[in-house]
């Protein structure tokens, strides 16, 4: 994917660029907010990775400027850890996702891919989700595999729904904790892995293939 990385710390920008390049992205680095706005007008990007703290024009202002100019491209905001109030601020300004620095490049990669795919659908509510032979009706709180109804507990259902929304993309543990459990911290115990094992058991109860793919160090993906 074509990514614009807006980061004033040259060392960190370099590290992140080489890591994202290794993950098959093309990365352009802009050191300031104004430079980022120029780059966006000049080139076509799939997503923007934007540092929250920038000299002259801060990250939140850059997102507002972008949205005002009619740009809908996904924005992932980066910030220093330990300042949760900035997260709300960042998301309110129009950013699509928010992570604390430093984040492993794989986490950024997964989040960007999820954001780009998420542009395909907008409505959270009534639509039916399909991933392979799994059908989910979020509004009715019901799910089927190959036409047979699945008996899922609340968290299992929320987990399956989130995986189905992003079927074909990997979701990291941090993303799942945020979106399924609604926590802004990662419990020391791996509650995601335990919940995925429970879900897997139910999905494969009658000997069907495991539809969930595990990627080491990254997370989980539901097959399309």
């Amino acid at each position: 994917m074509d990514l614009l990385l807006v980061e004033d710390d040259a060392d960190y920008a370099d590290t992140l660029r080489s890591e994202l390049t290794a993950l098959d992205h093309r990365v352009v680095v802009a050191p300031t907010g104004p430079a980022a706005l120029v780059e966006i007008e000049r080139d076509r990007f799939d997503a923007v990775i934007l540092d929250r703290m920038l000299p002259h024009l801060d990250g939140a202002s850059v997102v507002r400027r972008l949205r005002d100019n009619g740009h809908r491209l996904p924005v992932l905001m980066l910030s220093a850890l330990g300042q949760s109030d900035q997260k709300i601020d960042g998301l309110e300004s129009g950013a699509d996702d928010y992570v604390v620095k430093p984040t492993p490049a794989a986490e950024l990669d997964a989040r960007i891919k999820a954001l780009v795919r998420a542009r395909g659908w907008i409505d959270d509510g009534a639509e039916t989700l399909r991933a392979g032979d799994i059908t989910i009706s979020p509004g009715q709180f019901r799910a089927w595999r190959d036409g047979r109804p699945l008996d899922l507990a609340k968290l299992e259902f929320k987990l399956l729904t989130e995986l189905a929304r992003h079927a074909g993309s990997f979701l990291t543990r941090a993303m799942l904790i945020e979106r399924v459990w609604g926590y802004d911290f990662e419990p020391a115990t791996n509650i995601v892995d335990a919940q995925v094992r429970m879900l897997r058991r139910k999905l494969t109860a009658d000997g069907a293939d495991d539809p969930i793919v595990t990627k080491r160090g990254i997370g989980y993906m539901l097959r399309v």
């Binding site: 890591e19 430093p102 492993p104 794989a106």
Partner: peptide, 13 residues
């Protein structure tokens, strides 16, 4: 955390 994030990325690859 920064060097750890790099280590993590390398191990993942």
């Amino acid at each position: 955390r920064t060097p750890l994030a790099r280590l993590h990325a390398r191990l993942t690859r």
